[in-house]
Design a protein around this nucleic acid. Sequence first.
DNA 1: CACGTATTTCACACATTTCTGAAGTGATTT
DNA 2: AAATCACTTCAGAAATGTGTGAAATACGTG
Lengths: 177, 177
Amino acid sequence: MPVSEDADRTALLRYVERFALVLRASGIAPMPARVFAFALADDADRYTAGDLAAGLQVSAAAISGAVRQLVQWGLLAREREPGTRSDLYVLDDHNLWTRFVGAELDTLERLEETVAAGMEIIGVDRPGGRRLAETRDFFAFLRQELADAVSRWPAERDRLAAARSSSTRARPAGRSG
Amino acid sequence: MPVSEDADRTALLRYVERFALVLRASGIAPMPARVFAFALADDADRYTAGDLAAGLQVSAAAISGAVRQLVQWGLLAREREPGTRSDLYVLDDHNLWTRFVGAELDTLERLEETVAAGMEIIGVDRPGGRRLAETRDFFAFLRQELADAVSRWPAERDRLAAARSSSTRARPAGRSG
DNA sequence: CACGTATTTCACACATTTCTGAAGTGATTT
DNA sequence: AAATCACTTCAGAAATGTGTGAAATACGTG
């Protein structure tokens, strides 16, 4: 048992709030940001809604709303162990970062569509319309690049793990979740 | 002169609001989003604060705050024509998309720092800490990939322009703004 | 089928954000 | 040097967002 369980919990909570604050800067709502940060940083693999509420010291209602968002975004998966009556929430480990960027990709796609619609409304034969056309091209380019980058991540991850295990100790690369 | 100047303005304003709404989903505040969308979609190359206020039908104060943000982000440049007393705001054309993604890169960097700090606080020898380590690696990777992608854009833009001008008419590629 | 638990929904209080009008600041022109 | 114009700052009203407690619902067990 740690020197002080309470101190650890407090430090964790403070850190979760700090992490959540950065997440919120990207447009994520406070409570989903907190739940995500908590689920990532705390040690459990699965959390019941009760765990999350107790861990974050917030109401069950707040958790309900937050996990709904996170599950919708694919960052959290809802599971159910037979013989229990509470849902379990799990970070969708392997696909986690694909999902995370997936949200960005969706935004980029909506942006692209909106700009394309603007070209129709404004007309491409005018300065504004021409700027919109270039904007759309850029978003399309960026979206493709981002998608490619994400698809390269698993290989890169393995490469990093291999490099580390050989430079520190000869130990097979381990998965984190 | 268009059939109806008013109808065009209304359509533009409606579109600006729609565009701004998508921008806001990425965490940009309403008024900066509107000013950016307006400056991009309307036909002028430069706008005075008065132009923006009149065009968007909002107060001068609102413009003041919005352009401050946009200038800080580097999306808008402030200029001053000698012999006039009003500032001119210009979309920082050539670097525009570099800047746009630059904001994302900054967020990614803050995220990376925050996660790295978390590894210290939590300890990398625990499940939560190990997840944070992988998270940091991913953000570092993504940041690099994104920076690379942006640096490839100018060449890609020219390639697109060249392909288009040869497939439609034999005309030198034109710049949009 | 009734009970007990987990989860969701809802109305409300609280906090934050957003934009405006008015006052204040700085600079150029007359 | 006074007046005028552009811009910024500030306080406050309105709108929006956030999280809680309580009631309602769903679900699995005995």
